[in-house]
Computed example of a mutant assay.
Amino acid sequence: MTEHKSLWVVWQNVDTRLYYHIGTLSYFDEHYEFTYTFTGEGPQKVRDALENGYMLHPSFPILDKTYVSSKLFPAFDRRLPSEIRSDFGHILDELHLTESSSKMDLLEQTRGKLANDTYSFEKPLRIENAKLMTSFFIHGMRHQKDLPENWYAILRSFNTIELKPEPNNEVDANAIAIYTELGIKLGFIPRFYATGLSALLAMGIQPIIKVNYINEQSNSDWWVKVDFESDVLGLSDTELKKLDPLFEYAV
């Protein structure tokens, strides 16, 4: 079966620290495609980003063009660790990958982040077997003033986490905070998912969210990764579009 994988290309405004899903990178039928989210009129897409300081990537200067390549675009490929590095095998081990893993797998695991960079690559909201699924790292942990120094020990001992919408949040009315079962606020669901997942919660659907990975020794961007899953069986096409007009079905 031909591999089909997509990743959201996300840009962060360094002044406001807000995130936007500005494009999607896909691999299928042995070629790569990149397109901006120009058909998405809602918040956190590229049109919203352009109004808030974003400038189109110089390698992709046309907003409504689908860029196609038989190889990973150089602008994205340079974000990956080089295969000729002496420690490349160790890097793969750390990322739980193998030499047969694809560049899209490597880009997903590393998130393509560079030091002091405004771009990252994130798993999309995706429907598979009537379930809405994704995984992500908790955002904003280092900005939580009441986060205990031993938060990682607490989370390992009491690893149940809960979602709490914050409709009065001054930055984003769709903000969804993440708490431990002891009531400790860890951070937030990434903003580029928040609109869709807020709509899901408003429908009365309770998702399953589980801690996948904890690494308190890493940069705060990689402290805690969680898996998200929600049953969407029976939702109409209109209701599904409320989750995200650009989400995709698994192929």
Rank of each mutant, 00 (worst) to 15 (best):
I178T: 11
I178G: 07
I178W: 10
T180M: 13
T180W: 07
E181I: 13
L182F: 10
L182C: 04
G183W: 05
G183M: 10
I184M: 07
K185E: 12
L186W: 10
G187F: 01
F188I: 01
F188N: 10
I189N: 06
I189A: 09
I189V: 15
P190I: 07
P190H: 09
R191W: 07
R191G: 03
F192L: 08
F192W: 05
F192D: 00
Y193L: 15
Y193N: 06
A194N: 07
A194C: 11
T195R: 06
T195F: 06
G196S: 04
G196T: 06
G196D: 07
L197S: 01
L197G: 07
L197P: 04
S198I: 04
S198V: 03
S198G: 04
S198P: 03
A199I: 12
A199G: 02
A199D: 00
L200V: 11
L200R: 02
L200C: 03
L200T: 01
L201T: 03
L201S: 01
L201V: 05
A202D: 05
M203F: 12
M203P: 13
M203E: 14
M203W: 03
I205P: 01
I205H: 00
I205F: 03
Q206C: 10
P207E: 02
I208M: 04
I208V: 13
I208N: 10
I209F: 11
I209H: 05
I209W: 01
K210L: 15
K210S: 15
K210C: 14
V211L: 14
N212K: 12
N212M: 13
I214M: 14
I214T: 01
E216Q: 13
E216W: 12
S218V: 00
S218M: 06
N219E: 14
S220N: 14
S220K: 08
S220T: 09
S220A: 15
D221H: 09
D221L: 08
W222H: 08
W222C: 08
W222K: 00
W223K: 07
W223R: 04
W223A: 09
V224A: 10
K225P: 05
K225G: 15
K225M: 15
V226K: 02
D227N: 14
D227S: 14
F228H: 08
E229K: 05
